[in-house]
Amino acid sequence: MALSVSARSVDLRSEPVDQVLDHVDRSLQTCLDRNTVVRKRRTVGARTDRGTWVRIERRTVDSIGVQGWNGTECAARLTDIAQPAWLGCMVWQDSDEPAMWRADETGLLPGPPIGTAVLSEAPVLLDKWWQALNASLDALAGQETRRIATPDTVTITQALVTKSIRSVFPDGFDATVERWVPAHADLNWANMTAPTFSLFDWEDWGIAPLGLDSASLWASSLAVPALADRVRRERRCDFESRDGKLMTLFVCSKILGRDAHPEDPRLNPARRMVEQVIEELQRS
Rank of each mutant, 00 (worst) to 15 (best):
L21A: 01
D201F: 13
V168E: 04
L281D: 02
P123E: 10
T72G: 12
R41M: 11
G111S: 08
W53M: 05
R179W: 08
V91R: 14
S120V: 15
S221V: 03
V118T: 11
E240R: 12
G65T: 04
R179I: 14
I165N: 00
R147W: 08
E121Y: 13
G107T: 03
A99D: 03
V20F: 07
V91A: 13
R34T: 04
L210Y: 06
N191F: 09
V231H: 01
E178V: 07
T72H: 09
D80I: 08
T43L: 11
V154R: 04
W53Q: 05
A46G: 03
A185C: 02
A85H: 11
V66H: 15
V20R: 03
W101P: 02
Q67G: 06
D33L: 09
A117P: 09
V66G: 13
L281I: 07
D49M: 07
D127C: 13
V61E: 15
T36L: 00
M273Q: 15
T176W: 01
D49S: 11
A219K: 00
C252W: 10
D94Q: 04
C252Y: 12
E280T: 13
T162K: 14
C237K: 14
A46N: 02
K245I: 11
P112A: 15
E240I: 05
F250N: 12
D49P: 05
G142F: 00
D264Q: 01
T145E: 04
V38K: 12
S136Y: 01
M90L: 07
L108H: 10
L267P: 00
I148R: 14
Q282Y: 00
V61D: 15
A183W: 04
L249W: 09
I114G: 00
L21T: 02
L133W: 14
A122H: 05
G111H: 06
G111Q: 05
L119G: 00
A117T: 09
Q158N: 05
G142R: 09
I64E: 10
L187Q: 02
L3N: 09
R13M: 09
V231Q: 02
W205I: 02
T79N: 08
M247V: 02
T52A: 05
A99F: 03
A223S: 12
E279K: 11
R102P: 14
T43G: 06
Q67D: 09
L227K: 04
